[in-house]
Simulated assay, not measured.
Amino acid sequence: MAKREKLAKKVRQQYGALPFREAPGGVEVLLITTRETRRWIIPKGWPMKGRTPVYAARREAFEEAGLHGDPLPEVGQFEYVKRMAFGADRPCRVGVFPLRVTEELADWPEKDERERRWFSLPDAAAAVIEPDLSALILALPSHLADG
């Protein structure tokens, strides 16, 4: 097997934030669009050398969605396939950290590249295409009750 094929099959780890707030109608989550396909997803990214997974998740929430908040312990993982710059598809596994949003900035690094929107839990679960992420969104209230 060629080196490029082996790289394409290796599952890469990422970390993401599941931003949430408690609203009068119940818990809401914030989703962002991907840069190219404009599909809905949570802020996520690669591990950062010398930093914890939760730090990486919080950093991505700031860079991609302009959010600050208080993270909770990881609630699970989901997998998806990322289209890499060199054209290959790379399977990725994302550890998900709920993030209780304390500040929503008007300006942030990727503001001009993405859309962000608050969703009810059922609407957010329907908006994402990854079944395991959808399940994590719907299960969020049970994790909040635990903590």
Rank of each mutant, 00 (worst) to 15 (best):
L30N: 04
L30F: 05
L31R: 07
T33H: 00
E36H: 03
E36T: 11
R39Q: 04
I41L: 05
P43G: 10
K44D: 07
K44L: 11
G45E: 05
W46N: 14
W46F: 12
M48C: 07
G50P: 01
R51K: 15
V54M: 00
V54D: 01
V54Y: 06
Y55T: 00
Y55W: 05
A56W: 00
A57I: 09
R58W: 08
R58F: 00
R59Q: 12
R59N: 13
E60C: 06
A61N: 07
A61G: 01
F62I: 08
E63S: 10
E63Y: 07
A65F: 00
G66N: 09
G66R: 07
L67G: 03
H68K: 06
D70Y: 13
L72Y: 10
G76R: 07
Q77I: 02
Q77M: 08
F78I: 11
V81F: 10
F86A: 10
A88K: 06
A88H: 07
D89A: 12
C92G: 00
C92I: 11
C92K: 09
V96N: 11
P98Y: 13
P98H: 12
P98L: 15
L99N: 09
R100A: 15
R100P: 02
R100K: 15
T102Y: 03
E103P: 01
E104W: 07
A106P: 11
A106E: 15
D107W: 10
K111V: 05
E115Y: 06
R116M: 07
R116K: 13
W118H: 05
F119Y: 06
F119K: 04
S120F: 05
S120R: 08
L121R: 00
L121S: 02
P122K: 08
D123C: 14
